[in-house]
Design a protein around this nucleic acid. Sequence first.
DNA 1: TCTTGAAGCTATAGTTGCTAGAGACATTAG
DNA 2: CTAATGTCTCTAGCAACTATAGCTTCAAGA
Lengths: 147, 147
Amino acid sequence: MLTIGKLGEAAGVKVPTIRYYEQIGLLPEPERSAGNQRLYGAKALDRLAFIRHARDLGFPLEAIRDLLSLSDRPDQSCAAADIIATEQLAAVKARIARLTALKAELERMITQCAQGTIANCRVIEVLSDHALCADDHRAQTGSGAAT
Amino acid sequence: MLTIGKLGEAAGVKVPTIRYYEQIGLLPEPERSAGNQRLYGAKALDRLAFIRHARDLGFPLEAIRDLLSLSDRPDQSCAAADIIATEQLAAVKARIARLTALKAELERMITQCAQGTIANCRVIEVLSDHALCADDHRAQTGSGAAT
DNA sequence: TCTTGAAGCTATAGTTGCTAGAGACATTAG
DNA sequence: CTAATGTCTCTAGCAACTATAGCTTCAAGA
């Protein structure tokens, strides 16, 4: 049995975060010791590691909640999990594309910036010019979406 | 002169967001019409476009604030802007690596998930297994850091 | 056995970057 | 002139935590 601190250490999650996950129902309420302290088993560690990794990879908590609910009922079809994964894949691809473009811009900025003053440096210029950006944001003006 | 709505439309930013940026000091207080409505010129549009793009690219508002303060004093050395850009470049590279790993996992999940039930699907498994992940989070267990 | 310091408990409030609503005034198209 | 839209301020809410306060429990050493 692990205390909350040990669990957090093992999964790479901070203690208050674990309590937060419990509070919002992502983790079940664990056993308690005689002195009212939380005690976790191996299952809890798996579940927390799952959450941690999914978070790292950009899944919002709601998607994680869905995935966990699927894993809690493993007799169901995989289709639902597949849909979630597919949606996330699209988001991930888009993010990679964006970031790759940014990387190029930043590298260019840094190279051009190497000497001289801001007056002849393009850092700001590059970032205020619509023409130089991936500009996929033109399309999605209305929605926050993405996350 | 643009009203706040037109400005938002031109820059791809929602109206309340513009007011929020003004509130936190990223945008200067604009002129007002006789009826107290905000009126913006071309400069404001540039500045807002800059913020929008930098946000799109993952710069936190504080970094943007720094960059803007630099652009407000263009006679200075470019070194400071360079440092900010270099820091961001490192962060961007790390994110790309993470996301690329995720992409591989998701693709694998989806392929394996194509038929069958969750019982023989690895969606959950893949994400709870430490061995299969990029595991850079093992190292940074203690600190939020990383910006 | 006692004690001391770390770790745990609950509860509340703060963070970032917005977004949404209420209720009132301004502007503009017909 | 009127009606519809846009804008104004202000407050509250969202996700996903993080930090603080003030207390209790636990493990280990003297």
